[in-house]
């Protein structure tokens, strides 16, 4: 029942919003087509404007991932994680999930395939990936689009929230499935 309801929501969220927007627009006698194309014009401008910022941050992150430093951190931190009964397999997710969404999903797929579908590690990894947003990407795109270069405390808050999310994931999964 719950499962079906969730599927229904996922399936209809997007089409539902589109129908709602268009229908209200029509009822209020908005020239839908003209207003739509007028708004859509900005799409190209915004997407091209963020390219320099994306290049800076994505090249940096690609180099960081290729350098093997994430694996090195893993070796250092493994004993600490073992203390909390967390498999070292999940560590790359903890680091990568703030940097790259597709990389985090990739690591998660590996874990799900290797640890077995119903393993504790898989559950922990699933919750960690599912509850995060790629902080660096959001930062580069949103601030890049409007030309902000002084972040003030924005990155600190983002990373602290990521850290809280990791701790919460470990605690909640242990509590519910442990």
């Amino acid at each position: 029942m719950f499962h079906q309801l969730m599927n229904l929501i996922s399936l209809w969220a997007l089409p539902g919003i589109i129908i709602l927007i268009l229908t209200i627009g029509l009822v209020r006698k908005i020239p839908l087509y003209e207003v739509f194309t007028d708004g859509a014009k900005e799409g190209f401008k915004v997407a091209v404007n963020i390219i320099p910022y994306l290049v800076a941050i994505i090249v940096g992150i690609s180099m960081f991932r290729a350098s093997g430093i994430i694996e090195s951190i893993g070796v250092v931190c493994a004993p600490l994680l073992e203390h909390f009964k967390v498999s070292a397999d999940v560590l790359p997710i903890m680091i990568v999930r703030s940097l790259s969404g597709s990389a985090a999903l990739g690591v998660f797929s590996d874990i799900a395939n290797n640890s077995g579908a119903d393993a504790y590690t898989t559950k922990l990894a699933a919750v960690m990936v599912g509850s995060s947003e790629t902080t660096f990407y959001v930062l580069a795109v949103y601030f890049g689009a409007i030309g902000i270069s002084k972040l003030r405390y924005a990155l600190i808050v983002g990373l602290l929230a990521d850290f809280v999310g990791i701790i919460a994931a470990i605690a909640v999964v242990k509590w519910m499935f442990g």
């Binding site: 927007i21 209020r28 859509a40 091209v48 963020i50 994505i58």
Partner: peptide
């Protein structure tokens, strides 16, 4: 980075268009 930006163009145009309707209405 360029792929990401270019893949955003279309969908960005679509949602900015929708948002404009939602705003006007």
């Amino acid at each position: 980075s360029v792929k990401v930006a270019f893949s955003l163009i279309g969908i960005m145009a679509f949602w900015l268009g929708m948002m404009k309707i939602a705003k006007k209405s």
